[in-house]
Amino acid sequence: MTSKNRRRVYGALAIIVGLGLALPVLFGESPTVDDRKGGNPWRNAIYDFQTLITGFAAVGAAYATVRAMQKTDKKADKRHRDLMELSLRSDRLKVDRAINPFVDLLSEHEEHIGSLVRILAKADGEAAVDLYREYGYFGRQAGGLLALLGSPQLHQADDLLDGNSAHSLERLLDAAATHDMVMRTLFDDIFAMVQARKSQEFIVDQIAHRVEGLFTIVQTIEEHLAIYLAGLRRLEREYRRVSAV
């Protein structure tokens, strides 16, 4: 039964009950007062059970009031959700622009940075030339991290990050810029030394001399890139959960 038909049935029942109560009261014969003999039976029943009838009427009125309040609350909840949707739309779009496609791209760089850490951890003076050759590929890959972190789209959600993630982003930007500068200087210097026909021992010594500094920088990048990525993913989950409410 549809709600419209249900309301019609309830209305018809209310009219029938109302007429059944009102007509005997208005037109029924009243009993004698001394011993209550005679009179209209239906009217007498209404008179005898008027308190009970009043109670049922009060319950019905209360039920109708509750139903009306529930409908009002549903409308208020819908308006609240609509307002929340409008207020969150801007922030949700910011988060989406920061997440897509940057989480995947940053994850790739995280793998390259991990390779750099492993390479630098095992490097020594004897392996400096091999380090240079191997580091060249991963170093260039990691160098793209600075350009990626400089994208304005990525930073649209910066004001929504938690404290640790925001701090790690600052440290990450500084470390990536330092790494980029050191790498450019390193390769430029090595190229200049090769052009100047410096001995291999001299070049090896120069490369090995800078390994320790590079190791510290790359470790910093690895640490804070992981924290920043975790913050972005957490931000994405939070806004998905809020949007689903």
Score class of each variant (00 low, 15 high):
T2S: 12
K4L: 08
R7S: 09
A12S: 08
L13R: 07
I16C: 05
A22W: 13
A22I: 10
V25W: 02
E29S: 06
V33E: 02
G39V: 00
N40W: 00
N40R: 00
R43C: 00
N44T: 06
F49A: 10
Q50Y: 13
T51N: 04
L52D: 02
V59I: 10
A61V: 12
A62Y: 09
Y63R: 02
Y63H: 00
V66K: 07
M69F: 15
K74H: 11
R79V: 01
R81C: 01
L88W: 07
R89H: 10
D91V: 00
P101F: 03
P101K: 00
D104R: 11
S107R: 08
E108I: 08
H109I: 05
I113M: 09
R118F: 13
A123T: 11
D130C: 08
Y132W: 10
R133Q: 10
R133M: 05
F138S: 12
Q141M: 13
G143S: 12
L145Q: 07
L148T: 10
L161S: 03
G163F: 12
H167Y: 15
R171Q: 11
L172R: 14
L173T: 14
D174R: 13
D174M: 13
A176D: 08
M181R: 15
R184M: 13
D189K: 14
D189T: 15
M193Q: 04
Q195H: 13
R197T: 10
R197C: 06
E201W: 05
V204G: 11
H209M: 14
G213N: 14
Q219K: 15
T220N: 11
E223T: 14
H224P: 06
Y228H: 06
R234L: 04
L235I: 11
R241P: 01
V242W: 08
